[in-house]
């Protein structure tokens, strides 16, 4: 009897609201998933319930693999996202650490300036950046994105890391310094190992934004097979006024579900990184 009461209490306070949230947040993905398994003619047949699959098919996935360069897009997206995440992290570690520990003239304005400059929307920024990219001869190479993404990522990532570094007691570093360690040694041997959750959450943040980015990827790197998943999906699966819904959704599913799966391993660190870093910031 008591057990059922506890269950009922937990049902109303936990499982019911959780279910509602999951429906609210995941319904679009459920929708994408079932659309990707439906034959095209069933998609717009109003006789059937749109919430179920009448006739299961893999034709959309086959189409994706046989008629498009999906594997190449995946490879491109991975390379660009991983390298620019690493690059952003490295820069953000230095900047974040400098901001956390060091006072130098103009340090406040530097941060503010970078932050403000990037309030101008990318829809406007991409033209001047295109000129820079083209003058450097980087058009349609991975470098075009690897070098531009960090400009969007570093401000937030270094701010996040700054917060995390501040949580590490200064005294540890001071005593190490008294022992003759250099600042760089301290950073790499002591601070970073203590900051793994912070690094993870900053890394996840950067990776997500790279993975999602569309406009720069379209402008700087979209010729031939040099496309990322979002760009390739939109440019190869929309033909004039006809959208290949099944294949579009198949691509969206393959482009996002694996990432969500990987996240399930990191999400704990992500939260704890945020806790210590941004939150106490």
């Amino acid at each position: 009897m008591v057990g059922s009461d506890v269950f009922r209490a937990k049902f109303f306070s936990l499982y019911l609201p959780l279910t509602l949230y999951l429906v609210f947040l995941l319904f679009p993905f459920y929708w994408m998933l079932i659309v990707s398994f439906k034959p095209t003619n069933d998609l717009f047949d109003m006789k059937f319930s749109p919430f179920w699959i009448q006739q299961f098919t893999l034709e959309n996935y086959l189409y994706l693999f046989q008629n498009t360069d999906f594997i190449t897009w995946l490879k491109n997206t991975l390379i660009v996202s991983i390298v620019s995440t690493i690059l952003s992290l490295v820069c953000s570690i230095f900047i974040g650490y400098a901001l956390a520990r060091l006072r130098f003239p103009g340090s406040n304005f530097l941060g503010l300036g970078i932050f403000l400059a990037y309030l101008v929307p990318p829809t406007l920024l991409f033209l001047p950046l295109a000129q820079v990219i083209s003058e450097l001869g980087l058009n349609n190479t991975y470098w075009a994105l690897i070098l531009t993404y960090p400009t969007q990522l570093i401000p937030f990532a270094s701010w996040l890391l700054m917060g995390y570094f501040r949580t590490i007691p200064k005294e540890i570093e001071e005593s190490a310094m008294a022992d003759g360690c250099s600042r760089i040694q301290i950073l790499f041997r002591m601070v970073l190992p203590l900051s793994v959750p912070g690094l993870l959450s900053a890394g996840i943040f950067c990776f997500t934004l790279c993975w999602n980015e569309f406009l720069y990827a379209l402008i700087f790197m979209s010729s031939g097979s040099m496309k990322t998943i979002p760009v390739g999906t939109v440019s190869d699966l929309i033909k004039a006024d006809t959208l290949f819904w099944g294949a579009l959704m198949a691509s969206a599913v393959l482009g996002s579900f694996p990432i969500a799966f990987i996240y399930s391993f990191f999400v704990k660190h992500y939260v704890s990184g945020l806790t210590a870093g941004a939150v106490k910031g």
Partner: peptide, 15 residues
């Protein structure tokens, strides 16, 4: 937790 993060993870162009 990973599941509820999905709206934020998935590329806006696709979602």
């Amino acid at each position: 937790r990973a599941a509820v993060m999905m709206p934020w993870i998935v590329p806006t162009a696709l979602s």
